[in-house]
């Protein structure tokens, strides 16, 4: 059911991409700006599908390294009311009452292939990039928060207050919705660069988060998933998430 709007959205995104490419080419042809010959970096490609693998047995309760890493990277203030402050990653502790087994895991935007937030957005601001990263285009977000209601993972936050001192690489502002971007500004910048949460987790010697290309069978994330498998949260929704968990 949800695949039809996704296909439509893909088409509109492709059309937009073609239009933008056309604009770019026309611009290149008509303008003789001296600096337009700067190296053209390739756009995000559907050859890649970025994803995360979280190994819950390595993730300990009480550790919030990934959350801190994310907050530092994006200039998110972790003080304030839990009901209104921005949370791109949440640490969740689970306990099986029958067996007493405890699990701790971070939950962030799951970067779904068939993202409900993209389906419901009235302006097209909530969109999926060619490489599978689900983002909010804050230039077109009107702050209606439909996506927040549609997200089964409660992964999105709304900015209620005026912000100052934002990071140059992470523009954020009042009246828009935001969520984990898989650190696109980092992964676009350089090959093999990891999102801030994965870097921080490794720095604090847990290495519970692996980032990589799910389409590349030789990437470490694919290798790990291939040998030990990985589950999705709410797999019944058939959203084909880009974030997978082991040990759930």
């Amino acid at each position: 059911m949800s695949r039809v709007p996704v296909a439509d959205n893909e088409k509109s995104l492709q059309a937009r991409r073609r239009f933008l490419q056309g604009l770019g080419l026309a611009g290149m042809a008509s303008m003789s700006y001296s600096l337009l010959e700067v190296k053209a970096k390739t756009p995000a490609s559907s050859d890649k599908r970025w994803g995360l693998l979280i190994e819950t047995e390595k993730c300990s309760s009480g550790c919030d390294a990934c959350v801190r890493g994310c907050n530092e990277e994006h200039g998110i203030d972790d003080a304030g009311d839990d009901l209104t402050r921005a949370q791109w990653i949440r640490k969740i502790d689970l306990k099986d009452e029958l067996t007493g087994n405890e699990t701790s895991l971070p939950v962030m935007c799951q970067h779904c292939e068939s993202a409900p937030c993209v389906d419901v957005c009235p302006t097209g601001a909530s969109f999926k990039r060619a490489d599978g990263v689900v983002l909010v285009n804050k230039h077109t977000c009107i702050g209606c928060r439909y996506c927040m209601m549609a997200c089964p993972y409660k992964a999105r936050s709304f900015i209620h207050e005026t912000l100052t001192e934002q990071k140059p690489s992470a523009p954020r502002g009042k009246g828009t919705v935001e969520s984990c971007t898989l650190c696109v500004h980092r992964i676009d910048e350089e090959q093999d660069r990891q999102p801030a949460c994965a870097v921080k987790c490794t720095e604090e010697a847990h290495s519970a988060i692996t980032f990589g290309d799910l389409n590349d069978p030789d990437s470490s994330i694919s290798q790990k998933l291939n040998t030990l498998g990985g589950s999705q949260i709410r797999a019944d929704l058939q959203l084909n998430t880009g974030v997978r968990y082991q040990g759930l």
């Binding site: 933008l20 700067v38 053209a40 390739t42 995000a44 990039r129 676009d188």
Partner: peptide, 16 residues
């Protein structure tokens, strides 16, 4: 504006 759309939607970050 032109580069903004290229960067946000397509991920092109090398333009001036």
């Amino acid at each position: 504006n032109h580069q903004r759309d290229e960067t946000v939607i397509e991920g092109i970050r090398s333009e001036p």
